[in-house]
């Protein structure tokens, strides 16, 4: 209650067009969706914007649509809606699984998936599952729209692909058939905490060989990352516990963790290996391949 926010002009819009016009015209602004990150950042003066554009009432960006081979999620969809959505749970379960490990029920009812991405925290927990799902993002502006892969969206902490006059409108997820996927997060407690490391993996297997492997992590680099070293090492290999364990060790080639108040770089490195292994084994288990490793 007794905090001070910087002074700013406050604009509230109810349509995407209004919002796009404003971001095109205004200088020095921040966009507020759920506000669960931004309001904190304003309090601690990470940002002192002249203008705030509140898009939380743009209802047209709040949807989850099943189009058969793909799912479209409006950027203003609340995190809890993703957890509860039968569409996501059936066709992109790994996203629901990761989001369910984020924050608390109260915050998930405020925070949006677009907000989590645009905030561009290295610890963004929606990123690893979207990375392994090969999701794409629809960025729009008064000039039109463009589609970018989610893996190209993050440029650094708090920095994104968005141009000054662009907004993230939609997340497009191709529906994977015959894939196993899972997301695991290690935090400092069992809920409501930032990741020390979070990992998502997706695997496809044919003739007992890895046909496709995707591994993504957060909190171990300036942006969420894919782990191509692990992926390359496994694709084409026989499925075995040894192969998973050996490949998981290569994840350290794909990350650049730092030490901070949450964990040391060393611990993050070691945990990246363990979580990659655990997640790969769980993903395999979800397509009926139980390799053990939990003894």
């Amino acid at each position: 209650m007794f905090y001070k926010l910087p002074r700013f002009n406050y604009y509230r819009v109810t349509s995407l067009n209004e919002a796009l016009k404003l971001v095109n015209e205004l200088e020095d602004f921040k966009v507020v969706a759920g506000g669960t990150d931004l309001v904190m950042d304003l309090k601690i003066k990470r940002y002192i914007p002249k203008n705030i554009i509140d898009i939380s009432r743009v209802k047209e960006l709040d949807y989850i649509v099943d189009e058969g081979d793909k799912i479209r999620i409006g950027a203003l969809t609340r995190l809890q809606e993703i957890v509860d959505s039968p569409i996501i749970r059936e066709k992109a379960y790994v996203l629901a699984e990761a989001v369910n490990q984020m924050a608390s029920w109260q915050i998930r009812n405020m925070a949006t998936i677009g907000g989590n991405l645009c905030n561009a925290s290295p610890a963004a927990d929606t990123a690893p599952p979207l990375y392994v799902l090969n999701a794409e993002l629809k960025l729009v502006s008064v000039e039109g729209e463009r589609i970018v892969p989610v893996t190209k969206f993050f440029h650094g902490p708090r920095k994104t692909e968005l141009k000054k006059n662009e907004l993230l409108a939609e997340i497009i997820i191709p529906v994977e058939k015959d894939a196993g996927a899972s997301a695991i997060k290690l935090g400092r407690r069992n809920a409501f905490t930032l990741s020390i490391v979070a990992v998502a993996t997706l695997v496809k297997v044919s003739d007992n060989k890895f046909a496709d492997v995707r591994v993504a992590l957060n909190s171990v680099a300036p942006t969420p990352v894919r782990a191509p070293s692990v992926e390359k090492a496994l694709i084409g290999k026989e499925v075995s516990l040894e192969a998973v364990e050996e490949a998981s060790k290569l994840v350290v080639n794909d990350i650049k963790p730092i030490s901070d108040v949450r964990a040391s770089a060393d611990y993050r490195r070691e945990m990246s290996i363990v979580l990659t292994r655990d997640s790969l084994l769980r993903s395999l288990e979800r397509i009926g391949l139980k390799l053990g490793g939990e003894e």
Binding site: M40, S104, R188, R189, N190, A191, F192, T193, L194, R262
Partner: peptide, 10 residues
């Protein structure tokens, strides 16, 4: 955010 105390789940 970073002074972490237990939640009901812990």
């Amino acid at each position: 955010t970073d002074y972490v105390v237990p939640t009901a789940l812990d």
